[in-house]
Design a binder for these strands. Structure first.
Lengths: 327, 327
DNA sequence: ATCAATTCTGGTAGCGCTGCCAAAATTTTC
DNA sequence: GAAAATTTTGGCAGCGCTACCAGAATTGAT
């Protein structure tokens, strides 16, 4: 339990603590001989440096905190995946907490994270409590808001515009000639990015003179199952639709399965359009029409900006519209 | 950024540091008046406790470290999801790092994690470098090895037996009358749990007198796409198969899509069996035959054992065979 | 009012490390 | 070989907090 300390290593190596510290951090100057003696002692004693103490002494925690809404939505594991590679390569660690789309929890979790004096706090989108925002600003930490661009960043923002994505999705469907369009989605109050896509999608349809015909919004998180049920419910009510926009690809794949099961032919009877560009959508018998978002890259870029202590900025990574074969 | 310290709060509240500390931790005794004065000062100054310092002083980091092979395989986000709820409810934080199925990286990352003196280290399976195991044992930290049961745990193990899963999958296919069975999988060297399932699956087939006919193992991680391609390659070589076992559900769904696209009727022409029990498999036009593993619960149980400082033990959470309609 | 029991409070020594500085050792220069 | 320049080294304060303990304040009993 009482783990080996740097002082013990110094003792064993017959050197001063500062010399050992310098060798271990490979910083400042020391002789070749000192390095060998230190390494030998470290090996022999099984010394593992204590970063807690190191951080306290030097005020730089090399911890990057992620406060994310969910882990069920693939978006967030992808984000973490992109970031963790970059962080590990730069001797940083990722800490995370899950808010479950609850701004109150988010506030509490941000406070808990700040207690670790992280290099940066990375969180999803711009919709935070005023308390959260205030804490972040007062913390002196770097703040990166990711996966959205439609809002006023605290410090850095990395992502893509959900409003633009919604608008372009509508434009695409209209270009393809669809006129009786419906929507199947999950909880929009909580997932504000999905909400933004929905709002601008509807606005674009309306502007073109073909407003949204009907929508089915199911409570709870997005899922394949919810998409399948949602489409079934929507079609029961509005059988005349010629296209359906889904809140994301999980939901869209669910809708796709519903059509397969019911023999609804895609896209001639019904067109399907998603959001995210999941791998699975490329391998379905008909590739899914969707928008591919750079989720992993968002994580990478956010991590790079943070480890390099870049200035405040907004990075638009854009997205790619995948025509696919379902719309 | 010189953040507010406890000493400043004490000054502002006109109290001693120890009193403030006690109030903030809600421990030991202090008057109602002291609490009010402290809270007022905290609020006014925007004080955020420094856990780094607190941990150093009290030797209990309330950090739980996850060292996992991947974030692309849904298994691991599910594990983290289960754990993070329990940890947050108990004022712990999750830290994680991704090894990419590389034991050398695992060793380095475990060392980096131990530098934070976490309450526990949670890692996947039993296959670690000798150095990793030695470090873990010497660390005095709790160690939880998850998602496997076939091995010698360092401390605690929580999960299910991959060998049993492989064996039961084979038994199921045999019971259903399949005799010419193939396998489509991803990199087995690296994903040792998939390797164990494969080995015991084959052994069970052999014992029954119907050894595996052919297999297609593609490099790289598991994915829907890899499953689809793998099945195509396998069938090109061995057209007479009547059932295929996939290394997991992602792969199996890929195979399912291949059959849909090629008009191979399931299960009469070809049966498909997966592993994991992903949600998506329940919603495909024909529900996927698979084994459902308690991934989220594994995370919850691991976290609970850790925060309650439970004794060393092995927890078998079992799994459920889902008959589905594809085999 | 007095004394004991109880509650509350503050001073201070670390926790293990890094940063600073001065001292010691080594190398270079003349 | 002495002086100057350079490299290497070690001592110690202090990062912000908690644990420990002694002392002050309050309460209760007599």
């Amino acid at each position: 339990m009482a783990s080996v300390t740097l002082a013990e290593v110094a003792e064993a190596a017959g050197l001063g603590e500062s010399t050992v510290s310098r060798v271990l951090r490979n910083e400042g100057s020391f002789s070749r001989k000192a390095r060998v003696r230190v390494m030998e002692a470290v090996e022999r004693l099984g010394y593992v440096p204590n970063r807690i103490a190191g951080t306290l002494a030097s005020a730089g925690s090399r911890l990057v905190a992620f406060v994310i809404p969910s882990l069920s939505n693939i978006v967030f594991p992808d984000l973490l995946r992109g970031a963790s590679g970059v962080l590990e390569a730069n001797q940083h660690q990722a800490v995370f907490a899950v808010t479950d789309y609850d701004p109150g929890r988010e506030e509490a979790l941000v406070a808990a994270m700040l207690a670790w004096r992280p290099t940066a706090v990375i969180l999803a989108g711009f919709e935070h409590n005023e308390g959260t925002r205030k804490m972040l600003r007062a913390s002196g930490r770097r703040v990166v808001e990711v996966l959205d661009l439609d809002g006023e960043p605290v410090d850095i923002a990395v992502g893509f515009s959900n409003r633009t994505a919604g608008r372009e999705s509508a434009a695409f469907l209209l270009r393809r000639g669809y006129r009786r369009v419906g929507y199947v989605g999950h909880d929009l109050e909580r997932d504000t990015r999905a909400g933004k896509r929905y709002a601008s999608f509807c606005a674009a349809l309306e502007m073109a003179g073909f407003p949204l015909v009907d929508r089915q919004i199911n409570a709870g998180p997005s899922s394949v199952e919810s998409g399948r049920q949602g489409l079934e419910q929507l079609l029961a009510r509005s059988p005349g639709l010629d296209a359906v926009y889904f809140s994301n690809d999980d939901m869209a794949i669910g809708g796709y399965f519903h059509c397969l099961a019911r023999g609804i032919s895609i896209p001639s009877q019904l067109a399907i359009f998603g959001y995210n560009g999941l791998d699975i959508g490329r391998v379905t018998p008909q590739p899914l029409s969707t928008i591919r978002t750079p989720r992993v890259v968002t994580g990478q870029v956010a991590a790079e900006l943070v480890v390099s202590n870049a200035p405040s900025q907004v990075v638009d990574l854009g997205f790619e519209l995948i025509e696919g074969a379902t719309a």
